[in-house]
Amino acid sequence: MTAMVKAEGVHKSFGLVEVLKGIDLEVKQGEVFCLIGPSGSGKSTFLRCINHLEKINAGRLYVDGELVGYRQKGDKLYELKDSEVALKRRDIGMVFQRFNLFPHMTALENVMEAPIQVKGVNKGQARDRARELLERVGLADKAGNYPSQLSGGQQQRVAIARALAMDPKLMLFDEPTSALDPELVGDVLDVMRDLAESGMTMVVVTHEMGFAREVGDSLVFMDEGVVVESGDPREVLTNPQHERTRSFLSKVL
């Protein structure tokens, strides 16, 4: 098994504030990798580094064996052009906490947009595929609705369909259920569970310990920019080794 994501001593600062202080981890192909931790621990920042929405300051970050954001020749690093970064992002789907659907497009158009604009897929094909994906997330009947006419849970499922439309090899989830009403969380988690069963490699920043325990293959607990504890989710969640992990879990479980 090759590593889909590999981080070696990843550092990231915003001005003088160091948010990531040396992250080492490895996400294997086909695995569901959960990142948990208190807010401000740097887990969302790390996720955003994976598709180069944030630039890392030190260390190395690889996706599918290739360096993120840079090209290495000898011992020199060359920054990638915007177009090269965009090319790599095609293969990495991302789902945001606040959905970020395009409000001026219908659900169907949201899903069709990137394949048409980025991959040059023709309209008819893109539409067929978009309908297929909306059906997969259980929203076939909402294709013509604008995001403002959908509930949060429905919007998030459209957002997942939109990311899947690019046929990514890796999916990033940034607290996908944190902005949802409690009764809508289940629908989104069901879709993610299906996706995990289909073999998709997923990195999930989440507060849903139930999901992590049930679906997750690996789990990392982060605090103050470092990995405190990692391992099998069932083990870490039921029998945490570190005091910090224990106190965090006692508050959220």
Binding site: N51, L53, D82, S83, A86, L87, R89, R90, I92, G93, M94, F96, N100, L101, F102, E113, A114, Q117, V118, A159, R162, A163, M166
Partner: peptide, 10 residues
């Protein structure tokens, strides 16, 4: 961000 994450250019 969402648009960039989908691989769309500036």
């Amino acid at each position: 961000e969402a648009s960039h994450a989908l691989g769309m250019s500036h």
